[in-house]
């Protein structure tokens, strides 16, 4: 199953990448692959923005807008103006 892909915020700065492979190790949706000591995104649209790759990249080569993916929490935060959380 796949979700809306056009709005995904994941980005990889290949210049900074040292090819450690952590991103491919932690991603639960097989977004990354590492060949010749460089990471590449092979399925960016599958990203669910959990932030595991960003958090585990030792050279900050990955950026992604991480957040709660639950509609109820996001609607509530929209109404109350507070930060979204699982409640």
């Amino acid at each position: 199953m796949r979700y809306i892909e056009s709005v995904v915020t994941l980005n990889l700065d290949a210049e900074k990448c040292i090819g450690c492979g952590r991103c491919a190790e932690v991603c639960p949706h097989r977004v990354f692959t590492v060949t010749d000591r460089k990471a590449a995104m092979i399925d960016r649209g599958a990203c669910m923005e959990c932030g595991a790759c960003q958090k585990n990249c030792p050279v900050d080569a990955i950026t992604v807008k991480v957040g709660v993916g639950c509609a109820y929490a996001l609607i509530r935060s929209r109404i109350t103006g507070k930060e979204a959380c699982c409640g």
Binding site: V7, V8, E49, K65, G69, C70, A73, C86
Partner: peptide, 20 residues
């Protein structure tokens, strides 16, 4: 159905915000 996005293992927050 939209609320079930909170229970799935493949929906991104950006997607949920877009739907909103």
């Amino acid at each position: 159905a939209f609320n079930f996005t909170g229970s799935t293992a493949f929906t991104s927050p950006s997607g949920v915000k877009a739907e909103i």
